[in-house]
Design a protein around this nucleic acid. Structure first.
Lengths: 342, 342
DNA sequence: CGATAACTGACATACGTATGTCCAGTCAAT
DNA sequence: ATTGACTGGACATACGTATGTCAGTTATCG
């Protein structure tokens, strides 16, 4: 009934504690026959290492770093805040968690920053940058030092990270498509799709998802080509002004990325936000306010607290060689309106 | 930099380890003056007890019980499954978690069941039953035995539980109202509201929320009086048949409670599910299937895995005298459509 | 066969906390 | 001055694991 200990294993296997320890911790100087007996005993008794006791004995500390894009990004700010909030709670028990901001727009700058990580004093990294060949190589280097790497928010499929923590952006796009289809169920018109840049995987995937749903179920709605902002306020104003006047049948705007503050400014100026259906991503001070003002109809959210805690739990599990409780680590695509805002 | 231990406290306070222990664990035989010095040292050094080490020393086991309504309820089944799934993970580390099913419809049966709990071998209870005076008294009795009690899914405001784990049902109702308003933004008609019973707090609160939003923002939509099913299939069929024919302008159905399987059967028979907007609560095999078939437009979900883990974490924190990480324990009102189904 | 290498076990110490025993000191009341 | 109640300290043991030392036992090879 009670959990077996190493002592039980030793007794069951008919060997000494030392031998059990040698097997369990992959040390040498143990005969294959005895190793087998220990493994069999472990399996038979269902032994699982008491990580707490082990950590206590080793005075273990986990050292994790979040690598996040620098710059005026409200979403990243919320992540940083979530990391800070998680610190001092049970989550970061026995862990030092740092945040490193990198210039994500410049692959070389990213790599240079990653090189400053002291790999000998690190257990895990949660990384949120666009994947480039340089970044991929840098990650391979980090991994080769025995450090666990999880991709955060946008996946790094070619970097073979140990885990991805974030939402499925294709499904997120589909969700927006479905929402727009239902919000505009009997209406005809066009939908403006904007983002900062289509080089980020998230935006590409979201756009695919959107089109897939709308092209199937909502033929009466026409999605316009994606407009890219490149973080340029003037450009935002200019392109939106043009788009609004060029499409008098405009019914909705879908903002796939950041830059919502300026975008909303422009829309207030050139269109009627009460008539337009507007959907954006990520809960920030800007989108929160816009929801309350009913300027945004819905926001697609990945809970940043969950994101951060999940990354930390996953890194920890990897370090402990434990397995991951998938159901808990699944980041959900939340639809937030004014009424279920939190 | 490193966490202070009891030894540091003893040194700082100029007393022995024994005295520190006496103060920390509220034992007697310690002069107020010394107690003060210890407390001051604790505060000065920022000492926090290492729960893991303490649990190890005490060979502590937490014993928790989930008290859930019996009967053919798909939602409860998902909770039971979530409890089972959480078992064997880090969450239930050092904890025994049991499930007790009670006949929630009968307050006396509930109380009788609660009386069978062995209070001397219990640390915490998560309870999901309607609040009645009898239940309230039974909970008071449990609490007086030093056992922590959290309300699950529906709050027990008069029982003064140590915590409530669940969504704000008033906001959930408002969310549905907002969704219906947006789904039917330019349409006029009536909305059918159904539930199993309006004695459950959840349904009452959801209905209030719904009406508040619709009466303010969507005057063109008329909400009909709530129909109660009382778990009676025949009644469901009969009342729905009548409602559909009596309201040719019926545009939407909002199912606030359980019994969705039979309800959908009836609607298939008497109405056109493709034309009707239908929103229900809770992700079960039934609602999941109906979402995939596009018979349901949206489901309002409280993630049961989160619910269960949250209850366990909260109970544990209470037992440890630790404080609760509110951001993590906030159960979100999720809007699930076919596209963001998980 | 003997030397050497590979293996094994007994034992000790440590991590931070809980808890018990035992002894010594303090202080007021007798 | 003695008693006894109260207070405090020193010390030991334990929880489950990690890790080191050291002596002793096998196996292997020339």
């Amino acid at each position: 009934m009670v959990k077996p200990t190493v002592h039980d294993i030793a007794r069951e296997a008919g060997v000494s504690l030392s031998t059990v320890d040698r097997v369990l911790n992959g040390r040498k100087d143990v005969r294959p026959k005895n190793a087998e007996r220990v493994k069999a005993a472990v399996k038979k008794l269902g032994y699982v290492r008491d990580t707490n006791a082990a950590n206590l004995a080793m005075q273990r500390r986990y050292r994790f770093v979040f690598v996040l894009p620098d710059g005026p990004n409200h979403f990243v700010e919320t992540i940083v805040a979530a990391v800070a909030e998680a610190s001092g709670t049970q989550i970061v028990d026995r862990a030092n968690v740092d945040v490193m901001l990198v210039n994500a727009a410049d692959p070389h700058a990213v790599v240079d920053s990653l090189k400053t990580l002291n790999l000998s004093e690190l257990d895990g990294v949660a990384i949120m940058v666009p994947e480039t060949p340089q970044v991929r190589d840098a990650i391979a280097h980090i991994k080769s030092a025995g450090i666990y790497v999880v991709a955060l928010v946008s996946d790094l499929p070619n970097s073979k990270c140990h885990h991805f923590v974030g939402i499925d952006n294709f499904s997120a796009g589909k969700t927006v498509g479905a929402l727009l289809g239902k919000f505009l169920r009997n209406e005809t018109g066009s939908i403006l799709v904007v983002t900062n840049s289509m080089v980020a995987r998230d935006s590409i995937e979201r756009r695919y998802g959107l089109d897939e749903v709308l092209s199937q179920g909502s033929r009466h709605l026409k999605t316009l080509p994606t407009i890219e902002f490149y973080d340029d306020p003037d450009r935002i104003h200019e392109t939106l002004k043009h788009a609004v006047s060029a499409h008098p049948d405009l019914k909705a705007v879908y903002s796939m990325g950041s830059g919502n503050a300026v975008m909303l400014d422009a829309l207030r100026e050139y269109a009627d936000l009460n008539e337009l259906v507007v959907i954006a991503h990520d809960l920030t001070s800007v989108t929160r306010q816009a929801l309350l003002e009913a300027e945004l109809d819905a926001v697609i959210v990945q809970n940043v607290g969950h994101l951060v805690r999940s990354a930390l739990r996953v890194l920890r599990a990897k370090c402990d060689g434990a397995d991951i409780f998938e159901a808990q680590e699944q980041i959900r695509i939340e639809i937030i309106m004014r009424e279920n805002l939190y």
